[in-house]
Design a protein around this nucleic acid. Structure first.
Length: 632
RNA sequence: GGAGCUGUGGUGUAGCGGUUAACAUGCCGGCCUGUCACGCCGGAGAUCGCGGGUUCAAUUCCCGUCAGCUCCGCCA
């Protein structure tokens, strides 16, 4: 036993003397105590942070945690914290001596209940930094509801503590007011979303968490079945198939605040389990859905951030987005659009450009305003970056008051340079970056450079955007086959149906993404609702008829019983919430997040299980993995 | 799977091939009747993430490993 624990015990003894009745009663509802009964029906009393000068003269009961103690010997101040804020309690040694002794025993994070009188402070003693700074509470009775060890970190906003530690003591971390506000923001968002969708005629319906593993997509989290040894459930990557079946069931408008699971490596904006606002609608298609989502965003931004959105949101096709911004989720808060310079480049003497064009490629430019003063090293770093992004190289030109500075300018006639200047709208002091080669690669590389070189000051206005007409398939180089760009249930674009067989990569889909400030908030599509087209898609994806029937017979069968045309979208609630709270990581807006390795530092999950449990499941573990549990 | 960054009293940091491992804060004790990040005085508290190597000597240099974070791959 260390000295800390001994001190702890000594303090407990002291409290027992001072407070004979359950000094550290842990369980709420431990008898109908004086204070517990006060919480009974009727209205809630004002919280600590809600007391104002108007309450002066009234008697209040307060419950909360000790934020801070300022002991002046004969006079003792306590900042009492609950979720509403802080209020100062005063204990005076000239009053009740037993009460004062009890107050002296209080320490950080003790949970107490007090009764006392709200009094105005002398004008000299007002604390303008505190919302409750005009008053204080003269305590008449005190009950210690629970003691606390000294917390490993101080409970206050803006603290810089190792995330490791905060996650291990997440319940303490969450006591910090800014974290309460995060939880509250998320709650408000979900409430508004429910209200909005309800008013649009949607039904919230829960779908199974234990479902079957399906091919395509992310790695599944598997759950072994006890009753069918050797068989597994999968946790849903999304409720995709169930919501389509709900359309088959005639629900017409479904939504769910749905937990989803994907066993992939994590990022600041990716957790193994996350929440989607999952929506599906029959008959009315994309336009109606867009309007519903736009209305939802307007409600959220209006109510929670006081921002009015201009509706409807602009749209770009996937092709346009890639051509102009080099991204399928362009950040429209700034310009710097990519410009095709193939035509003047073709007439230049620059061999690299001409070779790229002769192979059917393009030459594209990114204009970086005011970056003409960049040092040689800065430019070299950009070239390095471009190569990292997959480019063969990066050419550059700087527009000067008179003429151009560039290692490649000599390959261009003054007339050609003039045309490039016109196309790119280059002004003196601007830097032009050129990529040459495959069109998609050039766009992507310049698109990433565009983000890298984005202005520091960005428009505070939210810039929403629908990106539509995504390709239906993409080529999976690892698997050497086609895979769905969105998912296998996405309907092909009607106009491109004839291309399915001969040029599937050219087929556009009816899929779309909602993008905000360069962040993909969600994606959706009109779905296939005809069995033969679904089978055709499966076939192109390399799924035989037998496999398709084995994995998806339930869906294909449903298609034989009159499924309405339908479509829907799933929006990432965590990302949206992080955006609203101004956080970089979605961990901040998840009550109990996991680390980048997928472990929970609070509970120690994932952890080994008892051999008996494995036997019941018919599972043998081949090699004990590491140690199990987080390092502490 | 790959790369980078981080790891020193409870917490946040400093430090250096040989230190009594420094500072702040917190904690404990004492004093204090108007503080509000109270103040003053005193005290306790660290095998420098873990393992190995180099060296007369490693918290410091090297290798490995673990944990956390960030990024690439991956994420229909």
């Amino acid at each position: 036993m260390d000295t800390g624990e001994q001190e702890e015990l000594a303090r407990d003894k002291l409290l027992e003397r001072l407070l004979p009745e359950e000094p550290c009663a842990g369980e709420a509802g431990a008898g109908p105590g004086e204070f517990a009964s006060r919480l009974a029906p009727g209205e809630d009393p004002p919280g600590c942070g809600e007391l104002r000068a108007a309450h002066a003269g009234s008697e209040v009961a307060l419950y909360g945690w000790i934020q801070r103690r300022r002991d002046h010997g004969g006079l003792l101040f306590i900042d009492l914290r609950d979720r509403t804020g802080l209020v100062q309690l005063v204990f005076n040694s000239e009053g009740d001596r037993e009460l004062f002794a009890a107050a002296e025993s209080l320490r950080s994070e003790y949970v107490i209940a007090v009764r006392g009188e709200v009094v105005r402070r002398d004008p000299d003693n007002v604390n303008p930094a505190l919302k409750t700074g005009e008053i204080e509470v003269r305590v008449k009775s005190l009950e210690i509801l629970n003691c606390s060890k000294t917390p490993p970190f101080y409970i206050e906003d803006g603290l810089q503590v190792d995330e490791n530690l905060r996650l291990r003591y997440r319940y303490l971390d969450l006591r910090r007011p800014e974290n309460y506000r995060r939880l509250e923001m998320r709650h408000r968002m979900v409430k508004l979303i429910r209200d909005h969708l309800d008013s649009c005629g949607f039904l919230e319906i829960e779908t199974p968490m234990l479902t079957r593993s399906t091919p395509e997509g992310a790695r599944d989290y598997l759950v072994p079945s006890r009753t069918s040894p050797g068989s597994f459930y999968a946790l849903p990557q999304s409720p995709q198939l169930f919501k389509q079946l709900l359309m088959a069931a005639g629900v017409e408008r479904y939504f769910q605040i749905a937990r989803c699971f994907r066993d992939e490596d994590l990022r600041a904006d990716r957790q193994p389990e996350f929440t989607q606002i999952d929506i599906e609608i029959s008959f009315l298609g994309r336009e109606r859905l867009f309007a519903i989502i736009e209305g939802m965003m307007a409600r959220l931004f209006g109510n929670l951030l006081g921002r009015e959105l201009s509706l409807p949101f602009p749209r770009l096709t996937y092709r346009e987005a890639m051509d102009r911004f080099g991204s399928d989720k362009p950040d429209l808060r700034f310009g710097m659009e990519l410009v095709d310079c193939s035509e003047p480049a073709r007439e230049s003497e620059f061999k690299i450009f001409r070779a790229a064009l002769e192979k059917g490629g393009v030459v594209k430019a990114l204009r970086v305003p005011g970056k003409g003063g960049a040092s040689r090293k800065e430019i070299d770093d950009l070239v390095k970056l471009a190569v990292e992004f997959g480019a063969g190289g990066l050419a550059w030109m700087i527009r000067e008051e008179e003429g151009w500075r560039s290692p490649i300018a000599k390959f261009f006639s003054p007339a050609l340079l003039g045309r490039i200047g016109e196309r790119t709208e280059a002004a003196p002091g601007d830097l032009l970056l050129f990529a040459a080669g495959d069109a998609a690669l050039c766009s992507e590389v310049l698109g990433r450079l565009r983000l890298h070189l984005a202005p520091e000051e960005l428009s505070p206005e939210p810039h929403f955007l629908w990106v539509v007409d995504f390709p239906l398939f993409e080529y999976d180089a690892a698997e050497k086959r086609l895979s769905s760009a969105h998912h296998p249930f996405t309907a092909p674009h009607e106009e491109d149906l004839h291309l399915l067989e001969k040029d599937p990569l050219a087929v556009r889909s009816q899929a779309y993404d909602l993008v905000l400030n360069g962040v993909e908030l969600g994606s959706g599509s009109n779905r296939i609702h005809r069995r033969e087209i679904q089978m055709q898609i499966f076939k192109i994806l390399g799924l035989s008829e037998a496999e398709a029937m084995e994995k998806f017979s339930f869906l294909l069968e449903a298609f034989e019983y009159g499924v309405p045309p339908h479509g829907g979208i799933a929006l990432g609630l965590d990302r949206l919430a992080a955006l609203f709270t101004g956080d970089d990581s979605i961990r901040q807006v998840i009550a109990f997040p996991k680390t980048a390795a997928g472990s929970c530092l609070l509970t120690g999950a994932p952890a080994p299980v008892e051999p008996k449990q494995l036997r019941e499941l018919g599972i043998a573990v081949r090699s004990a993995s590491k140690d199990g549990g987080p390092g502490r």
